[in-house]
């Protein structure tokens, strides 16, 4: 009983830490979103990914510190009979706190539901992509799919491949096709879909409503970054912008097909075209500098947590117990 109770206590600490941090991250991103964007897509993408990992990382750091402290035998319990204890040996009292058990159960349900939804989406997606691949013809580096719908996408977590419909392939001219493929090659080379899945797993531990905006921001930044990759490869940003607009034009003119649109985001096309034509910096250097600062900050916080385990322990017990 003590083991299960302690588990509830430590889970409660994890939820408190991870959810608080994820809410703070969301509020911060809401406040500095436009400034972040001005740094460039590479910086925005990296910062978003690191921020998304922060709740899980800090939650795990606090819990691991408390567990190690408890295993090492540093237990202050005898002097604190008025509240439940955050230690493995004396944690049974958490099971007698209905609100604690209910909160942990609710949080666990949310996390498991998010992971189950992700797993289901990946399995269904894999099945669908297998069917599309079976119906496709290999043409060099791409898979050509006979379809009236204009589309081009990358699919596959471990071995990503580029799928292009015949409507898109024949509808675009040679330069536009090259621009489109240069964009998709970026997704393949950098394993963006695998990173996207990993990010979704990591953000699953955050507070309700916090993962969505972060994932959307990361996706937008990634698309703009791949646009920049393609523009650099071709030396012509307007060729990439032109290919995007032409593909949308093909979608608009193919009656009744509605083309292949994923998660409609009105304004996203204009946003990407304007970003390409504005010549905004990619933000690689800013991204690296911020990533290093982030690393130093996380290590400093982890050290602070480890060296202040005792007062942290008391504070959390008093707050939760």
């Amino acid at each position: 009983m003590s083991g299960a109770g302690a588990l509830v206590g430590f889970a409660l600490v994890f939820i408190l830490t991870a959810w608080t941090v994820s809410l703070l991250v969301s509020l911060t991103f809401g406040a500095i979103g436009s400034r972040l964007r001005r740094l460039g897509p590479a910086a925005e993408r990296r910062i978003t990914a690191l921020a998304a990992a922060l709740p899980l990382l800090l939650g795990a750091t606090v819990v691991v510190t408390l567990v190690i402290r408890s295993i090492a035998g540093h237990d202050h319990c005898p002097a604190h009979d008025h509240h439940a204890h955050l230690c493995i040996a004396h944690g049974a009292a958490w099971m007698e706190q209905p609100w604690a058990v209910a909160l942990v159960a609710a949080a666990a349900t949310i996390v498991l539901a998010r992971l189950a939804i992700l797993g289901g989406a990946l399995l269904r997606g894999r099945h669908a992509v297998t069917q599309v691949r079976d119906a496709s013809t290999r043409l060099g580096e791409i898979r050509l799919v006979d379809s009236h719908r204009p589309f081009c996408f990358v699919a596959g977590l471990r071995r990503p491949e580029i799928y292009v419909s015949t409507a898109a392939w024949h509808g675009l001219d040679a330069d536009e096709r090259e621009a489109m493929l240069a964009h998709e090659r970026g997704h393949v080379r950098h394993h963006d879909l695998a990173w996207r899945s990993l990010l979704e797993v990591v953000t699953a531990f955050g507070a309700p409503l916090t993962p969505g905006p972060l994932l959307t921001r990361w996706e937008h930044a990634t698309e703009r970054l791949r646009d920049d990759d393609a523009a650099d490869a071709l030396g012509a940003p307007e060729a990439v912008a032109g290919a995007m607009v032409h593909l949308c034009r093909l979608g608009a003119s193919s009656a009744g097909t509605a083309a292949v649109g994923f998660t409609p985001m009105p304004g996203a096309l204009r946003d990407r075209v304007e970003a390409l034509l504005s010549g905004q910096p990619r933000g690689d250097r800013a991204g690296t500098a911020i990533a290093l600062s982030w690393l130093v900050l996380v290590v400093a916080v982890a050290i602070a947590i480890a060296t202040h385990a005792e007062p942290l322990h008391h504070a959390l017990e008093s707050l939760l117990g």
């Binding site: 990946l122 992509v129 990358v154 994923f262 985001m265």
Partner: peptide, 22 residues
């Protein structure tokens, strides 16, 4: 089904054709 569930981690499309068809 991919359209219904949203591409999410399954696909990375070159451009969101439906959203840009105005």
């Amino acid at each position: 089904p991919l359209l219904e569930q949203g591409a999410g981690p399954v696909l990375a499309a070159f451009v969101d054709v439906a959203a840009g068809s105005d």
